[in-house]
């Protein structure tokens, strides 16, 4: 985010050079950008426009269903239907709850681990950094399949351990589905977030901590009063990415469904939208997608505004 400002400053110096040679530069700009902008328009902008457009229409079938259905304009009725659907509302609420609990826990863990790794006297830094980052290096699908077996009744070594203690533990039971998915997300993404925060910590000049130590500040005090405020941009960035990531939750529940048939196919909003596509109701899926995108947008930008108002530049 801050880089954008730097870029603007850097761009200004180039501007003088460009102005001198004038119009001659116009043609290469168009030619150089076209290979990106044309596919970008076709494969990013067009689908977004298409989704919004489709969400405003509805397939109209004639009474007997003898003629092919026609598409008719239906205003916001798809949105009303989606929001009136208890399953879809439930899926929105579910990702909100998972996000509200899992994202703070994961980021606190990531921040804590990053601070410990950054402390000067910590041993085996390299090993720990690799270990924490390893889950991110596995394909998300492989991680999800792995966890689905780690919690599957019959296969799960965790349930087997509980059985040894005389406990019955089914991690795929309805009550434990959300914590299980939250754990899958935490396992998969903590290391990634930790590395972003850790890199920001490494950019803090060592003199700052040294000066604080001279002034009698404890290691904890240095971490809390000096380092954490300085890595604020990294924390904001990881939070925004995590909010967006939670909004698009699909792989983990879809793969968990293969060992936990009790997991409904409307578990998350994306899952519900795909379900609507499979039922050939694209107009409903489009409206659900737009609602989800707006929700993700409002939450991530709302968060940005909130931290900006709470003082401190970003």
């Amino acid at each position: 985010m801050t880089t954008a400002l730097h870029e603007r400053a850097a761009g200004r110096t180039t501007a003088d050079g460009a102005r001198r040679t004038g119009r001659r530069r116009g043609r290469p700009v168009v030619l150089f950008l076209a290979p990106f902008l044309l596919p970008f328009a076709a494969l990013y902008l067009a689908p977004i426009g298409y989704t919004v457009y489709q969400s405003l229409f509805r397939m109209h079938r004639s009474g007997l269903g003898l003629t092919a259905p026609t598409q008719v304009f239906s205003g916001l009725s798809n949105y009303a239907t989606a929001l009136g659907d208890a399953d879809f509302r439930g899926s929105l609420l579910r990702v909100l709850l998972i996000g509200a609990v899992q994202v703070p826990l994961m980021l606190l863990l990531a921040l804590g681990l990053a601070l410990l790794l950054d402390a000067r006297s910590t041993l085996f830094k390299r090993f720990f950094r690799l270990a924490f980052f390893l889950p991110y290096a596995l394909p998300g699908v492989v991680g999800a399949i792995m966890w689905s077996y780690l919690v599957a009744p019959g296969l799960s070594p965790i349930s087997a351990a509980a059985r040894h203690l005389g406990l019955h533990l089914d991690l795929t039971s309805n009550a434990l589905l959300a914590p299980t998915i939250g754990n899958m997300l935490t396992w998969g993404w903590t290391g990634y977030n930790m590395l972003i925060i850790y890199s920001a910590l490494q950019a803090i000049p060592a003199e700052l901590s040294e000066a604080a130590t001279m002034d009698g500040c404890s290691a904890f005090g240095i971490a809390w009063r000096i380092k954490v405020p300085l890595v604020r941009p990294a924390l904001v960035l990881t939070t925004v990415f995590s909010i967006i990531g939670t909004a698009q939750l699909y792989n983990e529940p879809a793969i968990l469904h293969n060992v936990a048939p009790n997991l409904p196919s409307t578990y998350t909003p994306i899952y519900a939208a795909y379900d609507a596509v499979n039922a050939n109701n694209f107009n409903a899926a489009a409206a659900e997608s737009v609602i989800l995108a707006l929700l993700a947008f409002v939450l991530s930008f709302g968060f940005l505004k909130l931290v900006q108002r709470r003082g401190g530049s970003l």
Partner: peptide, 19 residues
């Protein structure tokens, strides 16, 4: 371009499929 980085990818997949 920056905004596109933040668009949840799964949301693009369905309309792309239809197109």
């Amino acid at each position: 371009v920056l905004a596109a980085v933040l668009v949840p990818q799964p949301l693009l997949a369905v309309p792309l499929y239809l197109m």
